[in-house]
Nucleic acid binder design. Structure first.
Length: 463
DNA sequence: TTTTGAGTTGTTCGA
DNA sequence: GTCGAACAACTCAAA
């Protein structure tokens, strides 16, 4: 019996257009698929973590799809760096194939797995799949990584051609999947987690539906994307995070489609590549400011204010509505992520890492590179050529991007009766609805923006 | 080497 | 209400 090739699924939970899987199937030997619920990752999650439901659903869907082709998915639970070499040995595999992951912890794990496999004479092959351009593929003329987005984007677009957007048609070689039966998968409960009961669906079918829903809206993307009450964005971030949809498929669509909406959206996909390569080149950003001059900032870190921010009771309606969206749904609109991040750092003077960690805990689409990049951008400690005194005014932002207060009313029903004029800043209202009392029915603002702004300016200027 | 142009998403102030 | 300047000065990237 020929030694099988093992394909190891990680953050690429789909069969269609999966680079590593395609190469495994094309290699000529029979392919057996594995997924590991890695306890080294799971142990860091709260039992209430809602992402596990999504991942579990996606893995379940993947297994069903493989079974439809007469094959199967081995779903293991334990330390991946022990399980993968052990399975390789048990199944007499000579090659393990997976898609590359650029996070520091994943790089360390893969290096360790590769080392152990090498001792057994087994090869670990990693393919580029989760980005269009990885690591050193887009460098400046002096062969240094870009640290400013716009020149990176220009170089990225210049390098782009149909070759990089080609899909990997796994289905053409699907007969190379080994026909076998894997043991039962652990249930979500057995893994130590509970169902999330969110309307969000895992699996590549759900991703395809969301994508189809977005396609006709892409031409309006540029105009509508900043309004959280509007269905203006794709909502695909969570599927990109877990690879239930292919980045090439999305980029290909945007590129072919053209027009200001699609171009703007493609720009967002380029941001994703930008932060991935940034993390790969500068892994220290995980816990340190990208900009050296802001490494020693001393934040006030008022814990009561932090709790108010987390729970959505700062007294600033747009901030509170956004935080409640996050807490309830595991999602927050991009415009709101900027507003609440700016508010945490520049109004509450709290360390961006605290906010970053809270997002990491709550966001279904949490991705280390993008989350860190976004927070450092908002905190002015990261890759942004703009100066620290760009401080969002939560009231102005609210009036601009939720003009009729529709989003606020959705998440803060206690403010539903306030007028369009008053809903953005209830403390400034000349009169409030009968029976409504500020400080009882909704908090008075915990800080004054104008004052806090001055403190923030002073904090950053001091460096 | 030096120069030049530019930098995601902004706010405030005063005329 | 609208507009331009100031917020400060630096670094990046390319010519």
């Amino acid at each position: 019996m020929p030694c099988p090739t093992i394909f190891w699924f990680r953050r690429d939970l789909r069969i269609n257009d999966n680079a590593g899987l395609f190469h495994a199937l094309k290699s000529g030997s029979k392919v057996r698929c594995v997924f590991v619920f890695d306890t080294e990752i799971l142990d860091q999650l709260a039992p209430s973590d809602r992402r596990m439901d999504f991942i579990w659903q996606s893995v379940f869907a993947l297994r069903q799809e493989l079974q439809q082709h007469g094959s199967d998915l081995h779903v293991a639970h334990g330390k991946a760096r022990h399980i993968i070499p052990a399975l390789a040995h048990e199944w007499s595999a000579n090659t393990i194939i997976a898609n590359r992951d650029y996070e520091p912890a994943a790089l360390a794990r893969d290096a360790e797995v590769a080392k152990q496999l090498q001792q057994q004479g087994i090869t670990l092959l990693l393919y580029k799949d989760q980005v269009i351009f990885e690591t050193d593929e887009v460098l400046s003329v002096s062969h240094r990584p870009y640290t400013v987005f716009t020149p990176y984007k220009n170089a990225w677009l210049k390098k782009l051609n149909p070759f990089y957007l080609q899909s990997y048609p796994s289905q053409n070689y699907i007969q190379q999947l080994e026909h076998w039966q894997a043991p039962p998968s652990p249930t979500l409960e057995a893994l130590g987690f509970a169902p999330a009961n969110l309307p969000l669906q895992g699996g590549s079918q759900a991703a395809v539906q969301l994508f189809a829903d977005f396609m006709p809206r892409v031409e309006h993307y540029k105009r509508w994307r900043d309004f959280p009450a509007t269905k203006g964005v794709s909502y695909l971030s969570v599927h990109l995070r877990f690879g239930t949809i292919s980045i090439r498929q999305l980029a290909q669509f945007a590129w072919q489609q053209g027009g200001e909406g699609a171009e703007c959206w493609l720009g967002e996909l380029i941001w994703r590549d930008f932060y991935q390569q940034l993390l790969w080149h500068f892994p220290f950003v995980v816990d340190r400011s990208f900009k050296e001059e802001y490494r020693e900032l001393v934040f006030a870190n008022n814990e009561a204010w932090f709790a108010a921010w987390q729970q959505g009771r700062t007294g600033y309606p747009i901030v509170d509505a956004a935080m409640r969206q996050l807490n309830q749904s595991g999602y927050m609109h991009n415009r709101l992520r900027m507003i609440v991040a700016s508010f945490l750092v520049k109004d509450l003077l709290i360390d961006w890492r605290w906010g970053e960690a809270y997002f990491a805990e709550k966001l279904m689409d949490f991705d280390l590179a993008a989350n860190n990049g976004g927070w450092q951008w908002a905190a002015s400690t990261g890759c942004d050529a703009q100066p620290y005194f760009r401080i969002f005014n939560p009231v102005t932002q609210s009036e601009k991007f939720d003009p009729d207060g529709k989003f606020i009313r959705r998440y803060l029903p206690e403010l539903a009766q306030l007028t369009i004029k008053d809903i953005h800043a209830p403390w400034l209202a000349k009169s409030l609805p009968m029976g409504f009392q500020l400080g009882r029915d909704y908090p008075a603002p915990i800080v004054e923006h104008a004052t806090q702004r001055q403190y923030a300016l002073a904090l950053f200027k001091k460096q």
